[in-house]
Amino acid sequence: MKPRQQRMLAVGLAVAGLAVAAALTLKAFRENMMFFVSVSDVVAGNYPSERNFRVGGLVLDGSIEREEGSLDVRFVVTDLRCELPVMYTGVLPDLFREGQGVVAHGRMRSDVFVADEVLAKHDENYMAPEVAESMASHVEEQTATLRENGADCEVAG
């Protein structure tokens, strides 16, 4: 084997080995590295009870209740299977609205998620307002899917 081929082999093996090592590490820690927990997991009781965590989902259509004269807001997040009531006091991001993806940070107090921060998540679709209007309403779709999947929701005993 020529020296050049040896070097090629060495570099190739090192990069391949590294890629495999990285892939295995990432796979092993995947669960722990989740930025937020899904609504289904929280409802099923799979969340860290000792500390704050993040939960991600969609704001349920028609669930937003604001307290007059204060920044208190209550709403329900859903992953189109389970539902979780959220309480929050503070300013909400501009994108916060019904049907929008949100990530809330806080902890569970009995059956309510008390958030100290609510962030909005937007999707990868970009379109003009007129185009969006002509499409089927996301909110209606969401309600229908939730009604269909709601029975699959597992609640912690």
Partner: peptide
Amino acid sequence: EWWSSLHQGATLIR
């Protein structure tokens, strides 16, 4: 795709 993220998914290469 691998982890939940605040960031949106890919718009162009998908």
